[in-house]
């Protein structure tokens, strides 16, 4: 029932985000002929390389904002709608409510990241091309794991601000700064840009457009940061008065 409640509270945001990602990525592939022509390169870029640019570009942007949105909600938001008193009177540890919401949100974020694994190959077939599912899976897996930090930011913001709007706005700003961190910190930390990490960066083969390897260390660091954000969120909810 805790899972059911977490699903009820997030399903609208999740389904809207899923539809948005499907439309954005689907359209990017269906319109690929026109889009590829706009790249003034000799020889012209391949379809596979174009897809890698889509993965590293608009998919990242839409997905990162969507998962920051999924992090919103929870007990603090409930306190603004006053149903939190009923929730906390149930024989469930407070920690459990936050845990379930975090796991549900993380699963939804991963599902959203994995959506292009279906959309890209299917849309490619629709325009008479093909794209390997395995290659799409590698890009999407990278987004889902290394990018989960965006969800962690959303989750933490939802434990700081009761207003859902303020929490989402704060998450969006934090995610923006995360993606543009390399601009501010490149002198000291040249590989800090998460956008580069999520898109595969130097691991993308310029000829084939496929990922040649996975940035395991960066993924591990990102997952650790996500877990730390989650722990801080749980502890903050534990200490709060409702």
């Amino acid at each position: 029932m805790i899972w059911y409640k977490a699903w009820l509270e997030s399903r609208t945001r999740f389904l809207i985000a899923a539809a948005l990602i499907a439309v954005v990525i689907g359209w990017a592939i269906l319109d690929s002929e026109n889009a590829m022509r706009r790249f003034d390169r000799r020889p012209p870029i391949t379809f596979e390389f174009y897809v890698s640019i889509v993965f590293a570009g608009r998919l990242q942007l839409v997905w990162a904002l969507a998962v920051a949105l999924l992090g919103a909600g929870g007990l603090l938001r409930e306190s603004s709608t006053a149903s939190v008193q009923f929730t906390l009177s149930l024989p469930v540890p407070r920690r459990r409510w936050t845990e379930v919401r975090a796991i549900m949100g993380a699963m939804q974020s991963i599902a959203l990241a994995m959506l292009p694994v279906l959309v890209v190959p299917l849309a490619a077939i629709a325009i008479g091309r093909s794209y390997p599912v395995w290659e799409a899976l590698k890009f999407c897996g990278l987004l889902a794991t290394a990018g989960l930090v965006c969800f962690g930011i959303g989750l933490l913001c939802s434990t700081l601000l009761a207003s859902e709007f303020s929490s989402i706005a704060m998450s969006a700003v934090a995610v923006y700064f995360l993606f543009t961190a390399d601009i501010y910190f490149y002198r000291w930390l040249p590989n800090v840009g998460i956008g580069d990490l999520l898109g595969g960066g130097r691991y993308v083969d310029r000829c084939t457009g496929f990922l040649t390897a996975w940035p395991w260390t960066a993924v591990a660091v990102s997952l650790c940061v996500t877990f730390a954000l989650y722990r801080v969120a749980v502890e903050m909810m534990e200490r709060r008065d409702f």
């Binding site: 009820l8 024989p91 469930v92 540890p93």
Partner: peptide, 21 residues
């Protein structure tokens, strides 16, 4: 202690519950 809440019935000052159910 969480388990004691199984034996407690509570009506809050603000009676609002889950509006979407």
């Amino acid at each position: 202690t969480v388990s004691i809440r199984e034996r407690v019935g509570y009506v809050a000052e603000d009676k609002r519950l889950y509006g979407n159910m």
